[in-house]
Design a protein around this nucleic acid. Structure first.
Lengths: 101, 101
DNA sequence: CTGTATCCGATCTGATACTG
DNA sequence: CAGTATCAGATCGGATACAG
């Protein structure tokens, strides 16, 4: 009965307080850690790190290290992550239709 | 920046551990409290009550009392709730396409 | 039958300091 | 620059007992 619908699993993937925002930022453009920290005003490094790792573990984003004297890491959406973001569009539309504007 | 997208608000409405299941059950047919408790094996009365109240507060389900010697209450989806459930369909499809079957 | 009141443990988030 | 470690506070879900 629990597994009758698969929604829970997917909703869990985006249930973190900052996850959707992260997906959104990464959808606009690939981002470095510090960039994300600045753009998601208020998030702590620990939480940012944790949520990125979860998104990564779920295959929604990827983490790429670039060689150099200083660490340079870039996060970006996977195709899967992009597709999930698109699957969320009807929810936004529902929101516009059923919640105030 | 937080309010740039409305996803968080809506996802919050279905983020409770049993919310989607509840919407699903109510979508199949209007249900009484005891019925829901039996069908959602494992949920406690307190949590069932709380989540129903949240769904109600968000306009996703309604609670109707029927007069009689004993209390008879029936919960059912609103149009808004039904529409939200439909807006979640693409997520299930994403799940089928991107997660194992 | 349909809930509410309490208490508890687990989980989540945040602040801060420290590291390679 | 890109994180990890630690600790504290808040929130969530669950068990149980009780009430209208």
């Amino acid at each position: 009965m629990r597994t009758k619908c698969r929604l829970d699993a997917v909703l869990g993937m985006v249930s973190g307080k900052w996850k959707v925002l992260l997906l959104w930022e990464l959808h606009e453009r690939p981002c470095r850690f510090g960039e994300l920290r600045r753009r998601l005003t208020g998030i702590s490094e620990k939480v940012l790190s944790a949520q990125l790792r979860e998104l990564e573990a779920d295959g929604l984003c990827r983490r790429v290290e670039y060689p150099g004297a200083v660490l340079h890491v870039e996060y970006s959406l996977t195709d899967s992550g992009t597709a999930l973001l698109e699957a969320l569009v009807p929810i936004t539309e529902w929101s516009l239709a059923h919640l105030g504007n």
